[in-house]
Nucleic acid binder design. Structure first.
Length: 552
RNA sequence: GCGCCCGUAGCUCAGUAGGAUAGAGCGCCGAUUUCCGGGGUCGGAGGUCGCAGGUUCAAAUCCUGCCGGGCGCACCA
């Protein structure tokens, strides 16, 4: 909507001031905070002031005259030293409501997925333990960002990178094996750097029950450790998949690190870097000149023992993604990896990627609070809080919503008590209540007046002349812009704010006006508006993965 | 030491590709509540946007320096 308005303004104004076309990117069309400043306001006069050689306010007055002739605008004013304020006409609002009601839970979505094919990789938890809260936050942020890209018209692939090679799995195997042996021999030593969580014991118990003979008959202990590691990995991976599915997150691609190594991609990628003269040998190891991409020191890709570093694997992984032909990719990482970004980005660019191809969203810590006390978690020690625990505690919808309340790059304090409250203090409750209330009104409309809101009907928008009603329609008009903006900025947390604002508009409306009134025409108009609000909410809920409740 | 992130109301935080009087929730103060759906509703006070400069018609937002907090700087993954 905003872009349409902007286009209209540029088109109209440029007829008199051709310079407008050069300023296209700097011209802003915004929704002012205060109603008296109109439905939309533009800074165009400030920008034209210099090239035209007149004061902003004078230019604004000339623009005002031009714009006043547009039919979608009922009034155009000049204020604040040169802002051009535009008021929309009922004809415009009518178009908006019609569109929302028609498009339903996909309101404003770009149906043609023709803007490109992209990949978004997230969670990518090591299969060495259950998912914890940090993974959960990454899962939500990644998944919702993917939904946003889809909304904007991209073909999106969701990917989970499985770190199933290297030391972590070995450590896992050792841990499980030790627990396994401890069942019969409590003095059997547990590895110092092993995984301490109880889930390791559970896996060991399982193996003891079903595979005891097989494991004990293995002559070589390292063979038994490998077996345990492989088994535990599979089991944990299955559990991760189940947790994610229950959480509403599904992946298109499960990419195995191990298979990457087997594919020869590492050699291939390194060969390219070598040809570019970016590799050199020192102290028996092979180094990549990451200092050329702004890193403070060069990094090892092949260790002196001949094995690859994790970095080498990641280069190859991204080389593989590059060859898959995505227009761009996004990685959702824990914020502690931020120092890793420049060097990987540099490597990827050296492999032929475009400057903007490689993108990262960082996820900060989640702290859990219950009864005013912080619930501590630490994966290494094994006393971390599993994601599943939180979901069982407050429900999927609350977890998702709260994970989206703040910018992913800031620390999040999750208040369990708040998430469980059934009152307006709890934002999840508040937004879901809005949807349930609308459903309730619709049920009532049918029972008392025999009016079926689900049928195809159109209310008389000209009867919706109350300030709240206009505010709601205006907000619905800008909804797609706001969603796209959240997506472009890679800030999915903005969805909760958009949702909250829409819900609060509705609650205010509900608290001050009756919808089921005697005047049939007025009732239909208001129900029509409510239907628009409902579809707006459903669109947002769908993007976030939250359930729209009919009653609660 | 170098790099990144953060610093906004009493509290938890939005707002940062520059825009008009910096927002929300909680808490606090006041009023109100026999109502489709109860757990309310309406209003008010509350700010040196960490500090100091700079750019601009316009800075919480951009630039520089400093202060305070977090994190990262492996032949680990």
């Amino acid at each position: 909507m905003k872009n349409q308005i902007k286009e209209k303004i540029i088109q109209t104004v440029s007829q008199k001031f051709p310079q407008t076309l050069q300023l296209k990117d700097k011209i802003k069309v915004d929704i002012p905070k205060e109603e008296k400043f109109g439905d939309f306001a533009t800074n165009i006069a400030f920008l034209l002031s210099k090239p035209v050689g007149k004061k902003p306010i004078e230019v604004a007055k000339e623009i005002q005259e031009l714009l006043q002739q547009q039919e979608d605008f009922s009034k155009v004013e000049v204020a604040g030293g040169g802002f051009v304020n535009i008021f929309l006409s009922p004809a415009f609002y009518k178009k908006v409501l019609k569109k929302v009601v028609k498009e339903g839970e996909r309101y404003g979505e770009r149906r043609e997925k023709d803007r490109g094919r992209i990949n978004i990789e997230f969670v990518s938890a090591n299969p060495t333990g259950p998912l914890h809260l940090g993974h959960g936050r990454g899962a939500v942020v990644g998944n919702v960002q993917a939904n946003l890209y889809d909304y904007m018209g991209y073909k999106v692939e969701r990917e989970f990178y499985i770190n199933d090679a290297g030391n972590q799995i070995k450590k896992l195997g050792k841990s499980v094996y030790a627990r396994f042996r401890q069942i019969e021999d409590p003095t059997y030593p547990f590895p110092e750097d092993g995984y301490h969580g109880d889930y390791i014991k559970d896996i060991a118990q399982h193996l003891y029950k079903y595979e005891r003979e097989k494991i004990l008959s293995m002559v070589d202990e390292s063979q038994a450790v490998d077996f345990c590691g492989e088994f535990a990995k599979q089991m944990l991976l299955e559990r991760i998949k189940e947790d994610l599915k229950e959480f509403g997150v599904e992946f298109d691609i499960w990419f195995s690190e191990k298979k990457l190594y087997d594919s020869g991609k590492v050699e291939e990628a390194l060969q390219i870097l070598k040809e570019k003269g970016l590799l050199y040998e020192k102290d028996g190891a092979v180094w990549l000149k990451t200092t050329e991409f702004g890193d403070d020191k060069d990094r090892v890709v092949i260790k002196s023992d001949g094995s690859y570093t994790y970095f080498a694997g990641d280069i190859a992984y991204h080389y593989d993604k590059l060859k898959r032909g995505y227009d761009f990719i996004v990685n959702v990482w824990g914020a502690d990896h931020h120092g890793y970004i420049p060097r990987l980005k540099g490597a990827v660019i050296s492999l032929g990627a475009d400057e903007n191809w490689f993108n990262v969203i960082l996820i900060q810590m989640v702290k859990l609070f219950k009864g005013g006390q912080e619930v501590k978690m630490s994966k290494r020690a094994g006393d971390f809080i599993p994601l599943k625990y939180l979901i069982d505690e407050v429900g999927k919808d609350a977890v998702i919503y709260f994970f989206l309340t703040k910018d992913s790059n800031t620390h999040l304090n999750f208040d369990i008590d708040l998430a469980l409250k059934k009152s307006a203090e709890n934002p999840v409750y508040y937004v879901q209540y809005a949807h349930a209330r609308i459903s309730s009104v619709f049920r009532e409309a049918k029972e008392r007046f025999g009016f079926d809101v689900e049928k195809d009907f159109e209310g008389d928008v000209s009867l919706l002349d109350k300030p709240v009603e206009r505010a709601i329609m205006k907000y619905l008009a800008s909804l797609p812009d706001l969603v796209v903006e959240a997506g472009e900025q890679k800030q999915p947390h903005k969805l909760t704010q958009i949702t909250y604002t829409l819900a609060s508009h509705f609650h205010y409306y509900y608290n001050n006006f009756k919808f089921l009134v005697e005047d049939q025409k007025l009732m239909e108009a208001r129900l029509y508006l409510l239907k628009g609000v409902r579809e707006g909410l459903r669109t947002l809920f769908r993007l976030m993965g939250i359930t729209p409740l009919e009653r609660m």
